[in-house]
Design a protein around this nucleic acid. Structure first.
Length: 565
RNA sequence: GCGCUUGUGGCUCAAUGGAUAGAGCAUCAGACUUCGGAUCUGAGGGUUAGAGGUUCGAGUCCUCUCAGGCGUACCA
């Protein structure tokens, strides 16, 4: 249900009737219950243009406003606000509809677009570490969200499988004469060992450099070793995705190497469109106003990641036909993407109608505000972090005796992984993120556990009720009014979150919803003695829609719920 | 040096240019013969880093200052 646009439509009609020609701004939620449910602030903005007192304009609009079945009241307040109250009967009927709809009244887009979400992007030379966490879960959420709203989503995992370090790794793999299945179990160690050899032995280092050239020139033996290495490494990543419940598969992989054959063409095409300049032997693009160029080909003939990104952009826009391309990548690469996007458009690799966006996010910090590291200063392996989350989650479970060991494991996974994801998704992605175990595994505050608890608690009501829920929703008090209005806002919230690529808008909404439900439930008994049947059914129905909305919301965030916890 | 970015109660975070800046944690005070108290109610706590400006209206937009983070041509 597109609640706001329905209200906006009424306002628009009022403008027409009042004979005021102007683009109508959207209504917004009120800041306080005493101001009603929604407010329209456009009268003030128009006052100068129309040369009239804003209250006069507001009055004229209200005069011409048809409340319809949606609204019950409209009032002028303050300097010219128009406060709007929704009609409880209408709210109730809409909630009833939503409850019976599998999509909870959320419409699929009328004009879906093809969206490409580039996220995770691990480097194959190393095991995934905490630096990949945010991209993986924010990107996955965005992809889930857009899919749910009806867009055609293409997930892309742009893995780093090319570059100088692979020469070193392949040389080492060759040196220890082993097919890789054993030693690559611990990629991190393998990388360290190889690096140690590289630094210590000049002959080995030279050999490594030779291997780079060999791989790039298509030497079949080297490529075979390389492929083996990538397969093992990617297997490690898939293990992480599985644990994290991130929807990336091998089909979503378009590695850097995928674009290799196109790189020389990218450069020559840039040249053809007159964007290329030679500088110190390198082929560069100087952007307007920028003194530092983007290098697309090194003086030794090698290509750089800007080149690969340009090739990828062209492939995504022209071959895949994406109209929105979202890169979920660390904020440190803001400059890079600005430049690459600009070049891609100027060179015509990407049409002007394609929306290119860098979904930037901040760095993950420890409790003390320092970059997240192990005790001895190393990078934290993602798999270790996730395992720790599950262990810690198990500790928080109170009544362990009432579960079988298998149930306990499943529950710990759901809670632990959910906590890690929710904590990340619930803050504005652009600021740095302080990772705190105690906070994320708490039942209190805006956490996944609170949400999962709220859901489980509602399920427990249904178990106790043990019967069908059939009847009309009746809005009997202010809390019920607020709760049901909140429920109808779901689609608006999802749409905003999709436009802004801001998962925290969803978590904020879910938390407000859960809190509101708890208050409603505290004040409006459902199954206690002496509750009239129709009141009981109405409240059960509201509880049902609340639970379904929480579940759907968390599902988009990639977080599971359980009936009991 | 230049560029990007951030600065909101003790802490962690909200707030499409709109009314008296909201939550959660922590603190303090309440509600238990509990529809799961892993809950709810209430209180205290703010010059939104600082100074100007634009606007009917600024945490939000512009300029400067201060402080932090990041990036600064052949890594990704």
């Amino acid at each position: 249900m597109k609640l706001k646009s329905q209200i906006n439509q009424l306002i628009k009609e009022a403008f027409l009737k009042a004979g005021i020609e102007h683009e109508v701004m959207s209504v917004s939620e009120t800041t306080k219950a005493e101001f009603g449910d929604f407010q329209f602030n456009g009268a003030m903005a128009l006052s100068k243009k129309l040369g009239k007192n804003p209250r006069e304009i507001a009055a004229k609009l209200i005069e011409n406003l048809d409340l319809g079945t949606l609204l019950s009241k409209a009032e002028i307040a303050g300097p010219g606000f128009i406060n709007l109250w929704l009609n409880p009967v209408w709210i109730a009927s809409q909630c009833e509809k939503a409850r019976k709809d599998v999509r909870l009244g959320v419409e699929k887009r009328e004009t879906p677009i093809k969206v490409l979400v580039d996220y995770s992007g691990p480097n194959m030379a190393k095991q995934m570490h905490v630096g990949h966490l945010r991209s993986s879960i924010i990107g996955d959420t965005l992809a889930n969200l857009l899919t749910y709203l009806g867009d055609e989503v293409i997930r892309q995992n742009h893995i780093g499988d090319w570059g100088t370090q692979f020469g070193m790794l392949i040389a080492y793999l060759e040196e220890i004469r082993e097919d890789g299945s054993v030693s690559l179990k611990d990629l991190e160690q393998f990388y360290k060992d190889a690096k140690e050899r590289f630094d210590a032995d000049e002959d080995f280092a030279n050999k490594a450099r030779e291997y780079v050239v060999k791989i790039q020139s298509g030497d079949s033996h080297c490529l075979e070793l390389w492929q083996k290495f990538i397969d093992v490494s990617l297997g490690h990543c898939e293990e992480v995705y599985e644990k994290l419940a991130v929807n990336l598969t091998r089909d979503d992989v378009r590695a850097e190497s995928f674009y290799n054959d196109d790189l020389s063409t990218v450069v020559s095409d840039l040249d053809a469109s007159g964007l290329l300049t030679q500088s110190d032997g390198a082929k560069c693009v100087f952007l307007e106003g920028g003194e530092i160029p983007v290098i697309v080909q090194k003086s030794d003939g090698g290509y750089l990641y800007a080149t690969t990104d340009l090739a990828a952009l062209r492939y995504r826009a022209q071959t895949l036909g994406a109209k929105r391309i979202s890169y979920v990548v660390d904020a440190r690469q803001t400059e890079h993407f600005k430049q690459v996007f600009k070049i891609a458009k100027e060179a015509g690799f990407v049409g002007q109608d394609v929306n290119l966006e860098h979904i930037a996010f901040g760095t993950m910090m420890d409790k003390g505000g320092k970059p997240f590291k192990t005790r001895d200063g190393g990078t934290v392996k993602l798999i270790d972090l996730l395992d720790e989350a599950v262990v810690k989650a198990k500790e928080t479970i109170n009544d362990k005796a009432s579960y079988t060991p298998e149930q306990l494991d499943t529950l710990a996974k759901i809670i632990g992984i959910g906590a890690v994801k929710y904590a990340d998704l619930s803050i504005n992605r652009e600021s740095n993120y302080i990772f705190n175990w105690d906070k994320m595994l708490s039942f209190e505050g805006n956490t996944s556990l609170y949400m999962q608890y709220a859901y489980a608690r509602i399920q427990s009501i249904f178990r106790k009720h043990d019967g069908v829920i059939e009847g009309k929703i009746i809005i009997g008090d202010a809390l019920e009014h607020r709760l049901s209005t909140m429920l109808l806002r779901f689609e608006d919230v999802l749409n905003r979150a999709a436009v802004d690529a801001a998962p925290n808008q969803i978590t904020t909404y879910l938390f407000d919803l859960a809190t509101l439900f708890m208050r409603f439930y505290e004040q409006n008994p459902i199954l206690k003695e002496g509750i009239e049947e129709k009141t009981k059914m109405s409240r059960l129905a509201l509880a049902d829609l609340t639970a379904k909305t929480i579940k759907q919301g968390l599902d988009i965030l990639g977080i599971e719920v359980v009936d009991k916890l």
